[in-house]
Nucleic acid binder design. Structure first.
Lengths: 79, 79
DNA sequence: CGAAATTTGTTCGTATGTATC
DNA sequence: TGATACATACGAACAAATTTC
């Protein structure tokens, strides 16, 4: 799982893209948590705050819900 | 809370001026923190480092004390 | 019930690169 | 040239919420 550290796309955007695709593919399913910020930072070799920023992107898109002390859960599509 | 982005006065100076006035007015009181760098950057729509620079001005004037990881606290006047 | 571990939340400190004035 | 300003990214420390043992 390698990111492009030199290109124009920010690391947190790259991670957000990866996570978004994974959710769309069904690798992460509704009502279940995606990897923790720490797991993401370990997996992609980035700072926790960078991984956190990626998760926030998904949260702002409504794809996940962040729960303090629990994790970030894939949202069940409404309707 | 709007700043003059075009005039000759740097944004960080404008923010420092606003904060200084607020402290003098008593909006922020001794031993209590002023807004965090992030809150200031959000409120004034500037980069965090610009807000940080404003806080540093006040710190250099002795009006606040910056505590890493905690915040910037209004100084209690000596005497 | 309580201590430890996990996870997210917050804050300041710092560095790099880019752009603008 | 230098000061200003922004975006990104990492580091360190601690707090708060939650779960696990």
């Amino acid at each position: 799982v390698d990111l492009d550290h030199d290109g124009p796309v920010p690391l947190y955007v790259q991670i957000a893209d990866i996570l978004r695709d994974a959710i769309r593919r069904g690798d992460y399913v509704p009502d279940r948590p995606i990897p923790s910020e720490k797991d993401l930072s370990d997996e992609y070799g980035v700072n926790r705050l960078t991984a956190r920023k990626a998760v926030r992107v998904l949260a702002e898109e409504g794809l996940v819900t962040v729960v303090p002390g629990r994790g970030s859960y894939v949202r069940r599509p409404e309707g």
